[in-house]
């Protein structure tokens, strides 16, 4: 089975799993009458399952000739590192606080995304990270009255 066929089958299977999951959650809604809060979700869940089956059928019908000669040149190491940093940033934003976490996230993300032919400049990255964090925090705190979480710095920042 070629890559495209595998991918399209996986997409179909995913549709089916999502549809079945949604159907299960819909079945937990207490029914009151035929047209109630579960009516539309049942239609949607059945449609999702049907689309999953159709997608798998389409994937199996894909001719071998459609096999693409193109290689996936994406740099997934950088993608995974970026995803990790984004998730960590979201997870620690509240306990660590916006000012500190933003500096850490930006500094690490600059390093991760620096093109291979460019030298990593730690002092410049650190300066940009600190300046951005301070400017964004102060702008939103004082100009737009937005209270961003300060976390570990709560005893130093009002």
């Amino acid at each position: 089975m070629d890559f495209i066929k595998k991918r399209e089958t996986a997409v179909g299977a995913l549709f089916l799993v999502v549809g079945i999951g949604y159907l299960y959650l819909t079945s937990t809604i207490v029914r009151k009458q035929f047209i109630d809060a579960a009516f539309v979700p049942y239609i949607l869940a059945c449609t999702m399952c049907l689309l999953g089956i159709l997608q798998i059928r389409e994937a199996f019908k894909l001719a071998a000739a459609k096999q693409s000669g193109k290689h996936d040149t994406a740099d997934y190491r950088t993608v995974w590192k970026t995803l990790g940093l984004v998730v960590a940033y979201a997870a620690f934003l509240e306990p660590v606080g916006f000012p500190l976490m933003t500096v850490v996230y930006l500094f690490a993300q600059f390093i991760v995304l620096t093109p291979s032919d460019k030298k990593i400049s730690y002092p410049v990255y650190a300066a940009i990270a600190v300046t951005t964090s301070v400017v964004v925090y102060l702008t939103f705190r004082h100009a737009f009255d937005m209270i961003l979480p300060v976390g570990l710095l709560s005893s130093f920042i009002e």
Binding site: T73, A74, D75, T78, L83, P115, S116
Partner: peptide
């Protein structure tokens, strides 16, 4: 942004 991370290093 995640998509751009795919080729930003080699672009």
């Amino acid at each position: 942004i995640i998509k751009v991370a795919e080729d930003v290093k080699t672009e």
